[in-house]
Design a protein around this nucleic acid. Structure first.
Lengths: 154, 154
DNA sequence: AGGAATACGCGAAGATTTCGCGTCTCTGAC
DNA sequence: GTCAGAGACGCGAAATCTTCGCGTATTCCT
């Protein structure tokens, strides 16, 4: 079912993680393979679930979301139903880009994008503070995103 | 130079942020426009820099990076040269996916992906702890990523 | 050594992107 | 009010690109 990823696959993945607009012919040239072989490998990687899909990446500033905030959340209990309810509710907030269940001092870490700090205040009050089971919220603002990539090391 | 984003643009952006594999014809159907008009709008959005590019998203687990760690870093000083040196050095570590300059209790927040906790220990010792100007590191492990998206609200 | 499985390159068929062209609508000036 | 210019649309054709069948080469396992 899931094949081993060889060096050529790895190179293909490194390329398409950074730019998926390249044609099979251009890829072929970079990995020294024919376009059809490239295409088949990518197709196989997609089918195996290694490649989850292709997306367009937007410029957060140009769509009016220049502010990133990380929010640490502590719940009042760790009861399963509370966690499930929390997770279901947080997934419905479009301003929240990521939600991680954490070890350590707090329970969840959220990555949130806002129009500005006032907008974040609104998101905080209207959405985050109202999530089920929340005991404590602590927000940290990013002054600047030094860099950011979706490309995993392969 | 940069046009206003109207409702049709917004709908296109919402779609291609989630799936950029759709053909212009399929997009056209969803936004009630001709394929050529769709294509032209997307082309314009790309040229305006709203769409930064297209990438393939991989399954972190399937490429052997199931572990996400957030690392809070305090520097010994805030001198410009130290910050610049730190940022340049951290950008060279492929295990680091994001680097944010933060307000508050610490200076930088890093998002790191590792093969497992032992692998993270190695990354920590060999790369993070050796970054220039680092005074203190505090790592928090994600037990589970509840969800994650690259799609900004538009 | 034999044979199955896997992957390759080639080349054609089928889609899709891409672009010129004519039309329509909206805006602003007279 | 109407006329000119800008901007966007749909249509349709040309150029590209994807996609797949086919025959061959290589590998690996028995």
């Amino acid at each position: 079912m899931d094949h081993q990823i060889d060096e050529i696959d790895a190179r293909l993945l490194r390329i398409v993680q950074r730019d998926a607009d390249l044609s099979a012919a251009e890829l072929a040239e970079r990995v020294h393979l024919s376009p059809s072989a490239c295409h088949r490998r990518l197709q196989r990687l997609r089918q195996a679930g290694v490649v989850q899909g292709h997306v367009a990446l937007l410029d957060a500033r140009r769509v009016g979301r220049p502010t990133t905030v990380f929010v640490e959340i502590s719940l009042s209990t760790q009861a399963d139903e509370v966690l499930d309810a929390f997770e279901a509710a947080v997934a419905r907030i479009p301003d929240v880009l990521e939600c991680h269940l954490m070890t350590g001092a707090y329970d969840y870490l959220l990555k949130v994008v806002a129009r500005d700090s006032e907008d974040f205040a609104t998101i905080h009050r209207r959405h985050l503070a109202r999530l089920p089971g929340v005991a404590k919220l602590q927000s940290s603002f990013a002054l600047k995103t030094v860099f950011k990539t979706t490309a995993l090391p392969v």
